[in-house]
Nucleic acid binder design. Structure first.
Lengths: 160, 160
DNA sequence: GAACAATAATTGCATTTGCAAATATAGGTC
DNA sequence: GACCTATATTTGCAAATGCAATTATTGTTC
């Protein structure tokens, strides 16, 4: 018998939402939101990102991210500039201010993660991380059947 | 060296967002959103929920959920009624229409989960689920230090 | 090199979200 | 049983979100 509360997406989402919520509250005093932190931490790891890449990296929808980066630029946390050699794209980077801020926040993120995983052997956690990364990749294989299902429905509708 | 992309919340969030996005698209043809599915699946598992309990179960913020349930009632998917014996609370349930709809959608959710986990031995997946459930519980222990950190900041500020 | 297609980012607009305040009801307390 | 407090839900309002359309630039074809 299926139970939502034992399903993988449910368990996943619940932890994700909750950790996000707690972390948001923890960093609110620094004047940044969770999505802002994610952007800064992504840039800290790999700077000079284009908007689209940053969107893929952070799983933030691109138009949302465009505006978010705009706000962060206004606040002096990041730079954004069209490239000389390819004016379609834009390069986003941390400012020194953004860098020093994210370097204050990262230890808090590390602390949160430690608390989350402390009851489990490191091996389990690293396995878990590997599984999560691989599942992410394997989700791509669902794309075709989504299209197909929707196409089928559409066809049925236009016939009706 | 810390890397966002190897952090637990990052890997978690990414899979959660992506699965949600794909599932949303898959069920869009049925005229329901992902949050609506979650509410229906929660009620299918355990009906006659109060709003607050349903919020806790689904990790949907309570005011958002209040409106969502209102919309779902308008669409004939759920019932909502103040209790006779305790008029503060409301009882939310699936209608027959909501029930038959969610029973169409659950197999799709099962299918998605199967695809997600098919590359791993069941033992690993059940371990993973256990870990996720336990992590969720252990997050509660972060609450006090969030309060404390914010209190400390506040005190420092008022002194300045 | 003009016209068209493809890629990248931004913006308009309607919807969704979440905090805080308001409302509704129940449970003490004197 | 009036008054205060606690609990549960809803609503006002401002901010965030995401789709679709638009803008900007590059690449391709003739």
């Amino acid at each position: 018998m299926y139970r939502l509360t034992n399903s993988f997406p449910y368990l996943l989402n619940r932890v994700g939402v909750q950790m996000g919520e707690l972390f948001s509250r923890r960093i609110a005093g620094y004047g940044v939101t969770l999505p802002m932190y994610r952007v800064m931490a992504a840039l800290w790891e790999a700077g000079d990102q284009r908007l689209g890449d940053l969107a893929a990296m952070t799983t933030i929808e691109i138009s949302t991210l465009s505006r978010l980066v705009g706000e962060m630029k206004r606040r002096g946390l990041v730079t954004r500039a069209r490239l000389k050699d390819n004016g379609r794209t834009v390069a986003i980077n941390l400012t020194p201010k953004g860098r020093s801020l994210v370097e204050e926040l990262i230890p808090i993120a590390i602390r949160f993660e430690e608390v989350a995983v402390r009851d489990f052997p490191p091996k389990n956690i690293s396995d878990l991380k590997t599984i999560l990364a691989e599942i992410y990749e394997s989700l791509k294989s669902l794309e075709p059947e989504i299209e197909e299902a929707n196409k089928a429905r559409k066809a049925a509708k236009s016939k009706a």
